[in-house]
Design a protein around this nucleic acid. Structure first.
Lengths: 110, 110
DNA sequence: CGATGATGTGTTATATATTACCCTTAATTG
DNA sequence: CAATTAAGGGTAATATATAACACATCATCG
């Protein structure tokens, strides 16, 4: 991220929250920043930037933190296609015309 | 991320999956890469790196993509302290000695 | 088929992340 | 209280991300 002028507050706070989550999870596991940073193969400062919610931290660092904490599987649920109801709806609407089965309002179960 | 030698495969594939999720969500919404990159205030190439699962992409870019897709709220569930069962368990075990309620095995509801 | 748009890829320049130091302060423990 | 450790912050050097172009390929649609 280069210019933070355009980042909407939802995004800023979401990243800050993630940092909080990681810090809380680390403390619960009684791991020091130095120890955790070492397990993540980064420096203390980089971990600090992550926990402080700086948007410039890389996805890899973030994912490594979750992995060290044993929380990396949760990442797979983010934007999961199966759960993307809006996306599924839009895709269905945009599909080429098909044979209609029974009723004429079967695309309203959104 | 600097050295990719140490990134475990779980992390690599998790990031790749996220990229897939974003690409699928974008296509379902019928948004071109150019259009979406512009809404994210990044270049097509950066969006491409994100969708291709490169770990060096910043958290901010990732979160902006989810925001543009309307999927940013899912991010807040990652590493959520309330759901961190392992963390809650460890924290409880490590707390200073407290008054024991009834049974002596109430820390086994893990 | 031809045109248009989407996407992949490359390059150079710039901004920024990350490292490896060091120093300081706060907190915890003996 | 003293000692040890955790954590916050500063700097210079290096690595990398990102931007801003440009060009090529591929798919889609008229």
């Amino acid at each position: 991220m280069t210019l933070k002028m355009d980042i909407p507050p939802e995004v800023t706070t979401a990243i800050a929250r993630l940092g909080d989550h990681i810090r809380i999870a680390r403390k619960r596991r009684a791991i020091s920043m130095a120890e955790m940073a070492s397990r993540m193969f980064v420096t203390r400062k980089t971990l600090s930037r992550l926990e402080n919610g700086e948007p410039g931290v890389s996805l890899g660092v973030f994912a490594m933190a979750l992995w060290v904490l044993g929380l990396d599987r949760e990442l797979l649920d983010v934007a999961l296609p199966e759960k993307d109801r809006a996306g599924i709806f839009l895709e269905r609407r945009r599909l080429p015309q098909r044979i209609r089965e029974k009723t004429d309002a079967d695309d309203l179960d959104f």
